[in-house]
Simulated scan of single mutants.
Amino acid sequence: MSTEYRKTSEALSRLTDRQFAVTQDDATEPPFRNEYWDNHEDGIYVDVVSGQPLFSSTDKFESGSGWPSFTKPIDDAAVVNKTDRSLWMTRTEVRSSGADSHLGHLFDDGPRDAGGLRYCMNSAAMRFVPVGELEAQGYGAYLPLFRESRAS
């Protein structure tokens, strides 16, 4: 699997209308009516456009917001934070570093014991790869995340 994560016209053509609206037009999907807000499986979440690894289920938590929330990205270099002044407020937008996909927003109301951050993401911006499929889908390098979490 290539580790060059970028946006291609082919990748964009495979997106659903909602995935395109979220990742390319900065839309937000409805809370509690999205694919991963209540997902409790072990695995990683990758950019739906490029396949870039973004978040691990080991850092996912129940925020009560209705969107999948994480305490940190799988790798700090996987995301880029930008100031978002839409909707008459200032927020921190989170985008993938490879394909520049809009993912969601970053807030400072996450679990204090895990750094206090809440990466509030749109399910439509991500694809979930279960731990049992990591190797087959080219993400075997992330298996140790789950061996470590099971051992603790």
Score class of each variant (00 low, 15 high):
137 Q>G: 03
128 F>M: 09
105 H>F: 05
92 T>L: 02
97 S>F: 01
113 D>N: 03
44 I>K: 04
91 R>K: 05
61 F>P: 00
88 W>S: 15
104 G>L: 06
10 E>N: 02
104 G>F: 00
115 G>L: 14
11 A>D: 12
58 T>V: 14
28 T>Y: 06
80 V>E: 15
135 E>G: 03
78 A>Y: 00
38 D>F: 02
53 P>V: 07
97 S>A: 15
109 D>K: 05
60 K>W: 04
75 D>Y: 06
52 Q>L: 15
102 H>Y: 01
66 G>W: 05
71 T>W: 07
104 G>C: 04
58 T>E: 01
48 V>L: 05
84 D>F: 08
45 Y>L: 05
57 S>R: 04
43 G>M: 08
59 D>E: 14
134 L>K: 07
55 F>K: 10
70 F>N: 10
136 A>F: 08
62 E>K: 13
106 L>D: 00
141 A>W: 06
77 A>M: 10
29 E>A: 02
6 R>N: 05
74 I>L: 12
145 L>Y: 14
52 Q>K: 08
90 T>Y: 02
14 R>T: 14
47 D>K: 06
96 S>F: 11
147 R>S: 05
145 L>D: 11
6 R>L: 06
68 P>C: 05
133 E>Y: 00
4 E>K: 13
64 G>E: 10
7 K>W: 12
147 R>L: 13
96 S>K: 08
63 S>G: 11
139 Y>K: 14
148 E>K: 15
34 N>E: 10
99 A>S: 12
92 T>I: 05
50 S>L: 11
148 E>V: 13
141 A>E: 15
127 R>A: 10
43 G>H: 09
29 E>V: 14
106 L>G: 01
70 F>E: 10
116 G>E: 09
103 L>Q: 02
139 Y>S: 12
129 V>A: 10
137 Q>A: 11
62 E>V: 12
123 S>M: 01
40 H>G: 08
136 A>W: 09
120 C>V: 08
152 S>I: 10
103 L>A: 06
100 D>L: 04
27 A>M: 09
69 S>Y: 02
91 R>N: 03
34 N>P: 12
80 V>N: 07
98 G>L: 01
124 A>D: 07
146 F>C: 11
43 G>D: 14
91 R>Y: 04
4 E>P: 00
110 G>K: 07
125 A>I: 00
139 Y>N: 03
107 F>P: 00
77 A>V: 13
115 G>K: 11
80 V>T: 14
107 F>L: 02
72 K>I: 10
120 C>N: 09
114 A>D: 07
83 T>C: 00
101 S>Q: 08
76 D>N: 12
102 H>N: 01
132 G>I: 11
111 P>N: 14
93 E>V: 07
66 G>T: 08
90 T>K: 03
100 D>V: 03
145 L>H: 12
26 D>A: 10
123 S>D: 03
14 R>A: 00
14 R>I: 03
58 T>H: 03
53 P>A: 13
5 Y>P: 06
30 P>E: 03
122 N>G: 05
79 V>M: 00
72 K>G: 07
114 A>S: 14
